[in-house]
């Protein structure tokens, strides 16, 4: 359980980190909290010749109020959301999410950007940011681009990040006070990844998201539309799941139907 030897760099600024990544894109890995990367390094499942430490970059911990939106730096830890140090444009949804990620010792170090970059199909932040309509701000040497969560998430441990690109943060629209949210996670043990995670945001925009079904978190299109227009959303869940799950296991499918149904019930105030 010891990693292979690697070199270590701790660039003093984001620009220097981007230059380092541009130079060593093939052989370098970024480390922020390291709570997913270090186990993989220890298990020798993600060998890397150079570890670039971005955990101290203040540029990645920025919080900016943009009026109707908030910019949240990718280096903010789960515990910062849990403790209310970072603002919650999701009216409590982000705080509830953070409280339910892994264990406190992990939450104190793991970051929101790291979780998204890791792209575990059952992870919490990709699902919640997708439900909140977040836009990721990505930087590479000399360039910046904005990508919706839907375009950033590709598949299991796969994102559309280019080599050498760093997630700087996320822009998230502030939910109006009347908007309702729900986060329903089923896992076999406190702190484990979700077997099924349903997230619903119901306000001016309505999105119902499922994680743990298929290779990435997805918006349930027909269910979300039905919920937005006051139609029978529950009746649409099965059809949406059939599009997401290939060869669904009956138990898992029922579990997803249950978490989604509960999430819809919560945002409808039932």
């Amino acid at each position: 359980m010891k990693p292979s030897p690697f070199d270590y760099a701790r660039p003093a600024s984001l620009d220097l980190a981007l230059a380092t990544m541009a130079e060593h894109a093939d052989s370098a890995s970024l480390i922020a909290g390291g709570q997913s990367l270090v186990p993989l390094l220890n298990l020798r499942m993600a060998p890397s010749e150079l570890i670039v430490d971005i955990s101290r970059l203040l540029e990645l911990r920025e919080i900016r109020d943009l009026g109707d939106r908030v910019f949240l730096g990718a280096g903010l830890t789960h515990a910062m959301f849990e403790d209310g140090v970072a603002p919650d444009p999701g009216n409590g949804l982000m705080r509830k999410t953070a409280e339910n990620i892994a264990y406190r010792a992990i939450r104190c170090h793991g970051t929101i950007g790291g979780s998204v970059a890791m792209a575990d199909p059952a992870a919490d932040w990709p699902a919640v940011l997708l439900a909140l309509g977040a836009v990721a701000i990505l930087r590479s040497e000399g360039a910046e681009r904005r990508v919706t969560m839907n375009d950033l998430l590709v598949g299991t441990y796969e994102t559309s990040l280019h080599q050498g690109e760093i997630i700087v943060g996320f822009e998230i629209a502030k939910l109006p006070p009347t908007a309702r949210t729900s986060y329903i996670k089923f896992n076999k043990k406190v702190g484990a990844f979700a077997t099924s995670l349903a997230v619903a945001v119901h306000g001016e925009t309505t999105r119902v998201v499922i994680a743990g079904a298929g290779s990435r978190a997805r918006i349930l299109r027909k269910t979300s539309e039905a919920l937005a227009t006051g139609a029978d959303a529950i009746a649409c869940i099965g059809g949406d799941l059939d599009e997401i799950m290939s060869e669904p296991d009956a138990y898992l499918r029922q579990l997803h139907v249950t978490t989604i149904t509960r999430a819809i019930g919560e945002v409808l105030g039932a």
């Binding site: 480390i31 390291g34 709570q35 270090v38 220890n42 570890i51 955990s55 406190r104 010792a105 104190c108």
Partner: peptide
């Protein structure tokens, strides 16, 4: 609170 197996000393 931290897991010391998930931190490198150099960090």
């Amino acid at each position: 609170i931290a897991r010391s197996c998930l931190k490198f000393a150099v960090m």
